[in-house]
């Protein structure tokens, strides 16, 4: 192919993505330095870093940042540990394995809004939910899940959706593990833990890092689950950064402050991104 044609074929994707990235980013940066509230359209002008300061010193900011980190950290720990355990359990021949696999990965394909509603109503509702029924049957007072431990409840919902993702990836990766090596280790009398530590973990190192990094992108941006279940409350107990910025823009109509928050979210995501790009870049043989 001649070089000109190659360039023409590549151009659309590169140019479109460049626009998709640069234009909104530039606008966000610009808005973040402006006095810009939809409720007071007459007040405009450059105000330097005031919006950042406002966002930064907002009493909701620290809790929201903390919630974001707790949410991401907990979900990552739960999904990776549970995902590893379950994929090791299922990594053997047995009758109905295909069905068990399908049952295990299904939650990953459920819409986030559906999953949030099912958990909020049918499982966690303190009056009519299933968990309440179990508590009553065992003689306990039903827990007010979303009222008393909102962040934990949301972590549970998200982990339910994303552990299947980890299982799916680990399961696939385990199938390519060297079986002869495992059997040799078995014959040599290696214990489960030494096999797990010395053979399985090194084999799964890359899948684990990819699972962690991809989940980070998604969980830093958690929105639907919070929107549908707690709306960030009670107070700011389940508000994360994404939701805080959403509130600034859609309820306080403060475009300037929301944009400053947006810039903050972008920086946070890009710190994660650097690691992901490195991990994926290594696997891309060009």
């Amino acid at each position: 192919m001649n070089p000109t044609l190659v360039r023409w074929l590549q151009a659309p994707s590169i140019i479109l993505l460049l626009i998709w990235m640069i234009v909104p980013l530039a606008m966000t940066l610009y808005f973040s330095t402006q006095r810009f509230n939809l409720l007071y359209p007459e007040r405009t002008g450059f105000i330097g870093l005031s919006n950042y300061k406002f966002f930064w010193t907002d009493p909701s900011f620290m809790p929201a940042l903390l919630n974001t980190l707790v949410l991401v950290g907990s979900v990552l720990t739960i999904t990776v540990v549970l995902g590893l355990a379950v994929s090791l359990l299922i990594d053997r021949e047995f009758k109905g394995r295909g069905i068990a696999r399908v049952m295990l990965i299904s939650p990953f394909f459920i819409m986030p809004t559906v999953s949030a509603l099912v958990w909020k109503n049918m499982l966690m509702d303190p009056n009519n939910g299933l968990f309440a029924a179990f508590s009553n049957a065992l003689g306990f007072t039903p827990v007010q899940w979303l009222q008393d431990m909102p962040l934990f409840s949301i972590i549970v919902m998200i982990s339910w959706q994303w552990t299947p993702f980890a299982i799916l990836i680990f399961m696939t990766s385990l199938q390519s593990q060297d079986q002869e090596q495992m059997e040799a280790a078995e014959l040599d009398g290696a214990s489960f833990f030494s096999k797990f530590y010395n053979l399985t973990i090194p084999h799964l190192a890359r899948p684990i890092s990819i699972v962690i990094l991809i989940q980070m992108i998604f969980h830093l941006a958690t929105f639907a689950e919070i929107f549908v279940t707690t709306s960030g409350g009670p107070g700011v107990q389940s508000t994360n950064l994404t939701y805080l910025i959403y509130i600034q823009s859609q309820q306080a109509f403060d475009v300037g402050v929301a944009s400053a928050g947006g810039v903050f979210a972008i920086i946070l995501a890009n710190i994660v991104a650097i690691f992901l790009i490195r991990a994926v870049g290594k696997t891309l043989t060009v």
């Binding site: 234009v23 980013l25 966000t28 941006a221 929301a258 947006g262 810039v263 994926v280």
Partner: peptide, 22 residues
Amino acid sequence: TKDILMWMLSTKMLPAVGVLMP
């Protein structure tokens, strides 16, 4: 080529909420 692909992937890191207003 590799750099272009990695750059493309990096645009995924722009969180939606960061560009909501624009």
